[in-house]
Structure formats: structure tokens, C-alpha cells
Design a protein around this nucleic acid. Structure first.
Lengths: 212, 212
DNA sequence: CATTGTGAACTCATTCACAGCG
DNA sequence: CGCTGTGAATGAGTTCACAATG
């Protein structure tokens, strides 16, 4: 393992390869070449080999990669070979939708606590059986439930405050769905998911491609 | 306008600048320097100037950019200066959450039709007042309502079929929330939003940063 | 002998550094 | 004088091309 400067895009692609491998396994594929996997994931085959090459030699020359073995390796690389406890703040439509997402628990991501600041919501039970808590309880629940990942599904106006709360409670990995950049110290990881940005990209390209 | 090879990331950032400018306007800021805007958007100031430079000269040397003017320019670049009609297929939790999203209509993105294949859902009214339609009605409604953007919020197993349906109906810009790559011809635009990929990135980095 | 693994070549993107200008 | 606009320098990421090999 020569962990020399791994492109961020490589990690994204590993995640995509992984899901494709799950699919291949469920179709009883035994081996796969970088060429075929690349085709399925819509990348270059050299890209697949290089991405994997950052972490080891997982293939057999002249043959390809064992589907199940490669899955296991990527699982290890991405640290998906364990459970991750997540807390979510902001139990609106989006937050509720995420909590009900079937795929997440299947992949080791578990919502263990839900928070909101709306007195009408606090105390209610989510469809997945969690009691909606007051944000003031965050600190104690993070400790008790070993929450390591924070999900922000609040309106943008309070996203920063919510991020600060997570930090105070020592949750240093955040997934931010609010369409606003949040500021965090060096030690904290943030990934943003902003679908209005994606819509903007579509409309830009639509005009540029002269489809419109 | 010298549209010579504009990085895709530039478009993403323009969208981010735009939202930041909206915020600045609501705070009654009149002018902003590339330095300050860069700080707010967490990028390099030369990056801001270069991104804008692809499309024109919008600033005043020695002074900066007029907040309202720059907004207008970016709006034009991203084609946000008009309405976009969207159809959505897959009215589960995520689909419902998206339709209720306040920000989208405010920015010109309107859900004008909702589709599902579940007979129990078809005919029901969404919280935003749309009748849930059978997917067979897609073709006629695309024409009638001038749908130009398709949103896919189905389970991954049917994402490809749904994409094909959109293509048959001449919807050539798709936003795919299903965690599966979809295959489309050259002429069609796809943007993927896959939050489990983002979670995988977080867990990878968590271990790498030795926070865990 | 088909396919991996990988240095080298290339392409794309970001940042520097400063001339140009209001 | 201060900040924009931009060519030039640097850096990052992808693809090529082929030697290595099960």
C-alpha cells in the first residue's frame, strides 16, 4: 500500500466500483476485467486499474479480478467493514426521507438519534422508531450512542449553528444537505450535497449544448 | 465571451457564488471583492476571477464587483433567468421531500408533474397539489406541460427504465438520485446525486485522518 | 495470451504574479 | 492605490502504452 497522494476522485470511484460489484455478485459473476468494470462504471479501464493500484494488487494478470475478493478489499479501503452511527439534525421532509432509506443500514450506516428544535416535533416518534430529541441533548447522546457522523438537513439559515453544535459534541464528520457552505476547523470533515447546484449545472449545459 | 474549454468545476462554483451573492444582497452589501467572495465560498481569489473571466469582465479594477450586477450576470450564464419545468418519477419519501423543497420554485425550478408506477399512489394528490400520474402518461404530459428536466427518485432497480422513458419522451436532462449509473446517448445530460458515495468518502477520510 | 500494474506522456485545473486600469 | 483580468507556471488527475506475469 503506497498511499502517495490519492486523488479524491479515486475514492468516489471506489465507492461506485463497490456498488457495481455488489450488483455483479447478485448476478453470479465470478470474475471481472478492468475493461468490463470500467464500461459499467463509465470510466476508462486504466483508471480502474490505477485507482485499485493505489491500494494494492488485487487482480490476476490475464484473468481479471475476483468479484467477491475485490468487494472485500474495497470494503476495507473505505472502512465499510464496520458499523457507523449517525445523528441527524433537522427532521423535515428530507431528514425523514433519509432516515427511511433502506440502503443505508444495509451498508452499515445507522441513524441512532434524530434532533430538531421545533417543540412540536420533539418527543414524537419517527417512522423508524426514533424519538425526536431536543438539540440540547446532542452532547450526551453522542457519547452514549457513539455517534461519529452528523447529518445536517436543516434550513440553510441554521446550518452553521448546527455544525458548531456537532463540533462541540466532538462529531468531526459532517454530511451537509443545506445549500450553504459551512465553516469548520481543519480537524473536521465536511461533505456537501447540494442538488440545486446540480440543477444549475443541467440548465447551463442544456443551453450550451443548444438542446434548448 | 471566450468560451474556450471551461472546467466543469467552474460551473459548480458559479452556482455557489450565485447563492452567496443572494445572501450578500439580503445583507445589503453593495460591492464585493474577489478576495472576500472567495473567502465566503472557500476558494482561492484568483479562482473566482478566472471563473468569471471565462464569461466576461464584470468587475471594476480597484473596487470589486457590484453584488446585484454580478448576480444578474451569473443568472444569465447558468440560464437561471427563466422558468424550468420538471417532471419527477418515483414519489417515495425522497421524491416527496424534493417536491416540498421551498427553494426550488423560488429559483425558477417548478415541479409540474409527478409519476409513479404504484397503483395505490396513482391518482393521489401530493402535498404540493399535483396528481400522481401513471408513467404511461409521461409522454403526453411532457408535451403538454413542456417538461425539460427529469428527476429520478425511484429505487435503483428501475432507474434505467425510467431514464429510457424520459428519453423516449424527449426529456434530455436528468437528475438521478438512484445510486446506480444510468446509460444514455450522447445527446442526453445526466447529473448524479448519490449520498451513499458521500458517506463512503467520509468514512474513508475518517480512518485516513486517524480521527477514528 | 489476455489482462494486470505502472512509469511516462499528456490533458485539464488551479494558483501565482504582475501588468493594466478605474 | 487597490483590485481586476490574465498569461505563465505549477500542480493534479487521466490516459497511453507496454513490460510483466499467472
Amino acid at each position: 500500500m503506497k498511499q502517495s497522494k490519492i486523488p479524491k476522485a479515486t475514492i468516489t470511484r471506489l465507492s461506485i466500483y463497490y456498488r457495481q460489484l455488489e450488483l455483479l455478485e447478485s448476478n453470479f459473476s465470478y470474475m471481472i476485467s478492468s475493461e468490463k468494470l470500467a464500461l459499467l462504471c463509465q470510466v476508462n479501464s486504466a483508471q480502474v486499474r490505477k485507482d485499485l493500484g493505489y491500494f494494492g494488487e488485487f487482480g490476476v494478470r490475464g484473468v481479471g479480478y475476483n468479484v467477491i475478493e475485490l468487494q472485500k478489499e474495497i470494503k476495507k479501503i473505505l472502512t465499510l467493514d464496520r458499523e457507523w452511527n449517525m445523528g441527524i439534525i433537522g427532521i423535515g421532509n428530507l431528514g425523514s426521507a433519509l432516515m427511511q432509506h433502506q440502503n443505508l443500514p444495509a451498508r452499515g450506516f445507522e441513524f441512532v438519534a434524530a434532533f430538531d428544535n421545533d417543540p412540536n416535533k420533539i418527543g414524537q416518534i419517527t417512522s423508524t422508531g426514533l424519538i425526536i430529541r431536543d438539540i440540547n441533548e446532542l452532547d450526551s447522546l453522542v457519547k452514549e450512542l457513539k455517534i461519529e457522523i452528523g447529518i445536517i438537513t436543516t434550513p440553510p439559515s441554521v446550518a452553521q449553528q448546527v455544525a458548531d453544535k456537532f463540533l462541540e459534541s466532538h462529531v468531526y464528520a459532517l454530511l451537509n444537505f443545506a445549500p450553504r457552505r459551512i465553516f469548520v476547523p481543519e480537524c473536521c470533515l465536511v461533505e456537501n450535497i447540494d442538488f440545486s447546484v446540480k440543477l444549475d449545472i443541467l440548465t447551463y449545459k442544456l443551453r450550451k449544448n443548444m438542446i434548448v
